[in-house]
Amino acid sequence: MRRLVDFILLLVGIVAAWQILHWIAGDIALTSPLDTVEHLGKLLGTERFWLNVAETARAFVAAALISLIGGVALGVVLGLSRTSAIVSEPILIALYSLPKVTLYPLVLLCFGLGISAKIAFGAMHGLIPVTIFTMKAILQIKPVYWRTAETMRLTPGQMAWHVALPAVIPEVLAGARLGFSLTLLGVLIGEMFASQRGLGFMITSAMGLGDIATIMAVALFLSVFAVSANALLLLLDRTAAR
């Protein structure tokens, strides 16, 4: 009950802060919460908006799947030996904190303009956190599990599938949560820089027209989606941890 009250208070606080900022900055710089919701409602009724959503969603789902499957596979392989984990961790962390936008032209030159470049760029963002989390989780598995697996003469493949994977699910979910939000960011930045379709493209073209209402409406739409997806994954995380 108390948490619900807190949550409503937070929402009220955000809307109030937004409204105050709107009064300070004026209509040209920041549309009011009410106007933004109204404009979003109007956008939701147009077909073009949903075409853009579908384009972004396609790229996001593909990139997220690549990040999740690739990241878990890579994390398991690197985490099975302590040496390879120690060797690769600083490299992965360096790659993680690199501003990957700089590499986008390289991705564009490799994949050409189009959806595959966006998918590749999104996966670049999401793959590394999933790998890091999986690898660390594998390292922290209790040694007794390994000894049991050895006693049962499991092959490395069986070990990975029957022992390592079930033991690391909670951490993998935490990594997936971070990976998903970064993948979404990657896809959107990709669309903002070079694309003819998608929500990121909608934002940049609105930016060119100075159409602040559309920018705010799309940003609101994305924020609501991202926060709900995150809450859902958190819930999944909690049930898995039990």
Binding site: R177, L184, T204, A206, M216, L222, S223
Partner: peptide, 13 residues
């Protein structure tokens, strides 16, 4: 959940 939001979308604002 702050880092789940693509904050960068607010750059045009």
């Amino acid at each position: 959940s702050y880092y789940a939001i693509p904050t960068f979308m607010f750059y045009p604002v």
